[in-house]
């Protein structure tokens, strides 16, 4: 608490009351933020610099920050050192199916919880939220057996089919919160015009819900693209591996022997799509995941 108080005093609690603040303080704050941002972003810079180094440079003591010359040949070398092309295709397939299934079904469920009446609605919603507390392993061990008996192991079905059934507690929660903020009068007017629940959902609620659709789709993308637990349990055959799984497996199998410049190259391939997506939808994503919908920029 003392740390919090001290930090708060320095920073000041209320936004918008710094109009008369001296330039010196503003400069000091900029300097602090720039320094901190540099520290936070340094690991990504590090990844980039390692991906362009010679093997010798990556293990030089003391370490160097930037390669003496850019070794672009690392990229094809690393990419061809394992079937990463296949892993990438697998990841794209799994992620696309998951995003579509999760976003669509979460939107339906969220609308049901937010706008429609049925017995046990609140109890059901609480149960959905409570699943957040359930460790994956409680369900994964039986699911492994079930999917094995169905012959689904080493297929993408265990990773994608469940997404079509609700898309996860957080996605449903976000849609529900968002639909609750839409004015009820819209529904009422549509009902007078003879619209049914599906038409209200499809032609009134959904077109107004771009921010939350983007937020849920992005979060699902990130979850699926980076998932490791599901793939290492359900996918044993190398030809079925996802990109994250491929990197993790190669990294663990060759730990210490694999050249770090190659690891950095593959890691970058894994990191870049989420970063690009984040850059594109950053504003909607932050607005979507912040409680009380305060997505306005200060």
């Amino acid at each position: 608490m003392t740390a919090l108080t001290r930090g708060a005093r320095k920073a000041g609690p209320a936004p918008g009351r710094h109009a008369g603040q001296s330039v010196v303080v503003a400069l000091a704050e900029h300097a602090t933020l720039l320094l901190l941002a540099a520290v936070f972003l340094f690991p990504l810079f590090h990844l980039l610099s390692r991906s362009l180094m010679t093997p010798a440079e990556t293990i030089s003591v003391p370490p160097t920050l930037w390669p003496s010359e850019l070794r672009w040949s690392n990229y094809p070398e690393a990419w061809n050192s394992a079937p990463f092309g296949q892993f990438l295709v697998n990841s794209i397939l799994v992620t696309t199916l998951t995003v579509v299934g999760a976003t669509a079904s979460a939107a339906l469920c969220g609308f049901g919880f937010a706008r429609l009446n049925f017995p046990g609605r609140n109890a059901l919603f609480i149960i959905v939220i409570a699943t957040l507390m359930l460790p994956d392993t409680v369900t994964l061990i039986p699911l492994y057996i079930i999917f094995r008996d169905l012959g689904w192991l080493n297929t993408f079905l265990p990773l994608t089919v469940p997404a079509f059934f609700g898309g996860g507690a957080i996605s449903i929660f976000l849609f529900r919160q968002y639909f609750r903020t839409l004015p009820r009068e819209l529904d009422e007017a549509a009902i007078l015009d003879g619209a049914n629940a599906w038409q209200i959902f499809r032609f009134i609620a959904l077109p107004l819900s771009k921010p939350v659709i983007i937020a849920v789709a992005t979060l699902t993308f990130l979850g699926s693209w980076t998932d490791l637990f599901g793939p290492i349990i359900f996918l044993n055959e190398q030809s079925k591996w996802t990109l994250a799984q491929g990197i993790a497996s190669v990294f663990q199998a060759y730990y210490g022997r694999l050249e770090i410049n190659h690891v950095a190259v593959i890691s970058l391939v894994l990191v870049v799509p989420p970063l690009v997506l984040y850059a594109l939808v950053q504003r909607q994503l932050i607005a979507g995941i912040t409680p009380s919908g305060s997505g306005d920029r200060g």
Binding site: F40, L228, I286
Partner: peptide
Amino acid sequence: LLLNQALRGISIYRALFYIPVVVPAVA
């Protein structure tokens, strides 16, 4: 608290500090 300032470009800083969250855990 630091990011809650009325500083020029503050929304850029806010976006920057969130970047590590979107980096895959494996990476």
